[in-house]
Design a protein around this nucleic acid. Structure first.
Lengths: 246, 246
DNA sequence: CCAGTTTATGTCCAACAGGCGAAAACTTGT
DNA sequence: ACAAGTTTTCGCCTGTTGGACATAAACTGG
């Protein structure tokens, strides 16, 4: 805290930084990789074999390389735990820098949110497992808090963007899709309403195909797909829209 | 890029990082401080007197200290350019880490978004000035891009949160508030509808007072205030709400 | 006291979303 | 072939929301 909260002297930023004792700080990247598995939102975690936090579960990630960008780095690190080609979406989440967040000394962490569609079962190393996001195991560092941030972000974005495409397989029926939404949002979503809303927003379209429904009979379900498979904001937010020019 | 994009060997993250050549990377914090000034959304910038980027305009900020957290650091750095007590809101925006974003060598930057209410005119050092966000001067580094991120974030949040409190003075009339919204959003906002929406969402309330309107006469305007003066999400997003239990 | 200006209130309408029930389309069993 | 059961689809109704607009209210100045 600056004394009195007033304006300090107009030092140049570089010099000002030096006398505060800028230190060599490590920087790591982490990823919260989410996938709907068996109707549950799940996170990819690995069990630490070595200290610090030995035996606890942690997010995939690692130290930032000297010549790579953040996006580049998280993809490289992630490749050690899962096939990165399966990722349908990856975005930056937040950066944490509390001085004591890492027992090994000052380490900043930039966390990412990654999504994998529900239809695939990526191969993972032995130390790596999927855990339900609503029932996390004992986790090291501040990783549990980061997972919660990611869930919140995902829930919000499901409502005003087309992120659904990243959770669902390329083609799906409405009842499947509503199950994915239910798993991610934590509450029921009526397939009927979901269909109407996503169609009106132009997020999804019918492929023309249809597939027989579950084994006990029933009307065949129409097959849909997302029209665009990269993130877009599709809900021009409610209030305060620019005046319509019709 | 990993060859074939497959799964790498299961190295521990720390060791994996070392052989990639983890380097001493500097970390800086930056802030996009926005305020509505004379009906225009404006950014606080300072002119660099020394290289790199000498003579260009830059965001306030500086090197992260060795023992401080990110939030702590940005407040300290900001105190050199403006009275931090005037900030009504401060949130993390994004972190940039392209290896070439800083000519002096590898420097990560975590950017913040800060807001100052429209009614005050904070004292600033000689090298520091307010610039219209829609008409930026020549800026160094990637700072112009960061300002654009901040504007987008603010526009979005005005629609589904109560951030308005951070742009407006503690008390205001509806026509004043609609001018602030217009400046921040870039389009007209009808005071009538704004009032109805913000009242229904419980964001604002009448103080009971009223003030005479502009110098040329007119009905006195009712005075309002925001009920809560810290960020809250007030629009439980449209679609996909939990089923109502009425 | 009237004209002009600004704010407040109310109404209309279109869009939207949630709920529900009926119809459609299919499977299985008799 | 037909009935029963299941799942999806479609249409209707309702309550809410937000943008536009018109009218009423309140005040100033001449």
């Amino acid at each position: 805290m600056m004394p009195m909260g007033g304006i300090g002297v107009g030092l140049d930023d570089d010099s000002a930084a030096l006398d505060t004792g800028a230190a060599v700080s490590a920087h790591e990247v982490l990823a919260v990789v989410l996938q709907i598995r068996h109707d549950r939102l799940s996170v990819l975690l690995w069990r630490r074999a070595l200290p610090p936090c030995e035996g606890l579960w942690a997010l995939p990630g690692g130290r930032l390389g000297g010549t790579e960008g953040l996006d580049e780095s998280i993809r490289r690190q992630l490749a050690q735990k899962v096939d990165v080609r399966d990722l349908t979406h990856l975005e930056q989440l937040e950066t944490r820098g509390e001085p004591d967040r890492h027992p090994r000394g000052r380490t900043l962490a930039t966390a990412y949110l990654g999504l994998i569609p529900a239809d695939i079962d990526p191969a993972t190393p032995d130390d790596t497992e999927w855990h339900p996001a609503s029932d996390l195991p004992a986790m090291g560092f501040d990783h549990a808090a980061i997972v919660h941030s990611a869930r919140r972000r995902l829930r919000a974005k499901l409502s005003y963007t087309n992120v659904g495409f990243a959770l669902a397989p390329p083609e799906f029926t409405m009842s499947e899709l509503s199950r994915y939404y239910r798993a991610a949002l934590g509450h029921d979503v009526a397939a009927t309403n979901l269909r109407r809303v996503l169609l009106r927003r132009g997020q999804i379209e019918e492929t023309g195909e249809s597939v027989p429904s579950g084994r006990s009979g029933g009307r065949p379900a129409a097959v849909f797909r997302f029209r665009v498979r990269r993130m877009e904001i599709t809900d021009a937010f409610a209030v305060l829209r620019p005046p319509s020019d019709t």
